[in-house]
Amino acid sequence: MTTETVDLNGHPFFLRRWGDPALPKLLMLHGFPEHGGAWADLAPYLGERFHCIAPDQRGYGRSWAPAGVENYAASALVSDMAALIGCLGGPVTVMGHDWGAAVAYGLAMFKPELVDRLIIANGVHPVPFQRAMASGGAQSEASSYITFLRRPDSHEVLAEDGFARMKQLFMAKMDTGWLTEEKTQEYLTEWARPGRLETMIHWYRASPLRLAEPGVPLGDLPDLPKERLQVHCPHLLIWGLEDSALLPESTEGLEEFAADLTRVELPGLNHWLIHQAPDQVARAILDWLDR
């Protein structure tokens, strides 16, 4: 792995790279509460096919972290990564996990000329996810932690007692046997960077997605412009079936928005599948590419 800091739209972003720079490029976008180093488990398995590039996204790690929720609108997050693809000489294959999937989908939908192929691992397209969160059903209940995160003091609560509540949130209801003491210390280091926990959580505060209370569905959702939210490139969705934060219903109807969609389900894996079984995730990607 090599590291560097690059200038994107006038601001510094920290990158990690793996593999031969002459190979096709794979842009890897992490989610919450991770950082670009989260891809260190998976990237070596893809090194024969791709040059892997993983930034710390806006508000995370050693990248630019402006204060203020208004700086974390989806359009700004997508603009950062569009600028990075421009520096890389795109188009590229884009992979996203968790919140990284939101940016990856944004690139594929709004900057299609920059994305050759789209790979998502336990992440969601905004329309099926909004439908599921608004239903008042199981996904509404599973996403109830978002209400807490959107509180103006949530970052302070999560940081108390050496990030005790943060660790509980990170590990809730899912196997974290992969989370070694060394990896735990890596996360603690990233969360402890001045102001970073607050700016990481700003992604939730800035999101326009609405969450119903369990049993109380929302009936006043605006009509979304489906024609503008299409993924036209080949799309692979890899899903760890034991995910307790994002349920399968959060991807129902994805075919409406991705005509060239391949789904691969991985039993026994959860939201942290890229850490639990990077070999299985890589095999799903390489098999899809070969097909």
Rank of each mutant, 00 (worst) to 15 (best):
A192W: 11
T5K: 14
T176I: 11
A258M: 04
P267R: 13
P234Q: 12
F50G: 02
W18C: 09
A164V: 09
L211P: 01
A40E: 15
T176A: 12
D175H: 11
L107A: 01
G96V: 05
L286Q: 08
D20R: 10
H125E: 04
G31K: 02
A259L: 06
S75L: 11
G59Q: 01
Q57T: 11
P66M: 07
L15D: 02
H275S: 09
T251A: 15
F170M: 10
A164L: 13
L149C: 06
G68D: 01
V78E: 05
P24G: 09
R283Y: 00
P194R: 09
Q139Y: 06
V281F: 06
H275N: 13
Y72D: 02
P128R: 11
M28C: 15
A22T: 14
Y60R: 03
H11T: 14
D56L: 07
Q276S: 08
S207D: 14
D243R: 08
S207F: 10
A132T: 04
G253L: 08
P112M: 07
A284Q: 01
L218H: 02
A134P: 03
L84F: 05
G31M: 06
T3C: 13
W99S: 02
F129N: 13
W239M: 13
G47R: 13
A132S: 10
I120R: 03
H35G: 00
F50H: 05
A212C: 11
I85K: 03
L84H: 04
W203N: 08
D175E: 11
M28T: 08
H275E: 11
D279I: 01
P208D: 09
K226F: 15
A67I: 00
G195H: 00
L15F: 05
D20A: 10
V92W: 03
F50S: 01
T93P: 02
A104I: 04
H30W: 07
A108Y: 03
D80A: 06
A104G: 09
F32K: 10
